[in-house]
């Protein structure tokens, strides 16, 4: 349902040009929980942000449900974005709005009438289990609660895709687990396709059915997580899947000596 073809993105920086994403192609099927993993600066967030065109690719095309988003007018694109929910590492909630006003925000943007908004906000808060916090301001919430508000807000316009930019990287392990379980539930219950960018192997192992490994703007390896017999080929994938950061660290210390 999402098809990225030959996407490239170059930024002009003080030290010259930085090619963040280099001719990446990617297919995501309906119902996938698709992981994109890599280290900082690998280009994975840029790639994710090109799916809803928060970043415009220099070359290539982005097809969602058969429509090439890069060919749409600004107005049509803004409308399309309603079907692509997004959540963020730092939640990005409006701090001067209450929880329910935050969830109501995308509905206001979409021009949904007030009575309908109220109903939908209540539904979404019910889904994320935060009905009792409806009138609280974000500052009073824990990280996990903030992310759940973020999810409720992304769900408000009933998107069929949820883009997740490091959704658990600012959360402690227990909260991470509960947010992941929750994303999985959304995927199963509502059939929402999820694309999740992360540097945490745990996230991939817990919920993803497919994963692409990114390094230096390229996808270096694609893995189907259902295939339990796969052997990581690239160095970075081996590193990630061995999950041996501790060992690696010791080795480095040993080498340093």
């Amino acid at each position: 349902m999402i098809s990225l073809k030959n996407l490239s993105k170059t930024y002009a920086t003080k030290d010259g040009e930085l090619q963040a994403v280099k001719s990446v192609s990617l297919e995501v099927a309906k119902g996938d929980i698709y992981g994109i993993i890599g280290f900082s600066g690998a280009g994975k967030s840029t790639l994710l942000r090109m799916i809803n065109l928060l970043e415009r690719p220099d070359t290539g095309s982005v097809h969602v449900d058969g429509v090439d988003l890069t060919s749409l007018s600004k107005k049509e694109l803004l409308k399309r974005r309603l079907s692509l929910g997004m959540i963020f590492q730092h939640f990005n909630l409006l701090s001067n709005r209450t929880v329910s006003q935050n969830v109501s925000f995308p509905l206001e943007i979409a021009g949904v009438p007030k009575a309908k908004r109220k109903k939908r906000v209540a539904e979404c808060l019910e889904i994320v289990g935060l009905s009792d916090k409806a009138n609280a301001y974000p500052v009073k919430l824990s990280g996990g609660q903030k992310q759940r508000v973020g999810i409720a807000r992304a769900l408000a316009t009933q998107p069929n895709v949820l883009l997740c930019d490091e959704p658990t990287s600012a959360l402690d392990p227990q909260t991470t687990e509960s947010i992941l379980a929750f994303l999985k539930e959304l995927n199963e219950k509502f059939g929402i396709t999820i694309i999740i960018v992360t540097h945490e192997m745990e996230v991939i192992k817990t919920i993803c059915n497919k994963v692409s490994v990114m390094e230096n703007g390229h996808i270096v390896e694609r893995i189907n997580m259902r295939d339990s017999t796969f052997v990581p080929q690239s160095k970075i994938a081996q590193f990630l899947f061995r999950n041996e950061i501790e060992f690696q660290g010791k080795e480095e210390i040993a080498n340093a000596r």
Partner: peptide, 21 residues
């Protein structure tokens, strides 16, 4: 916070809505 502006953009907010809301 630029991230909040970006979140609004991801929800399809136009420039006028971003300014006011």
């Amino acid at each position: 916070n630029r991230g909040i502006v970006e979140a609004a953009e991801s929800m399809g907010a136009n420039t006028r809505q971003i300014i006011w809301k």
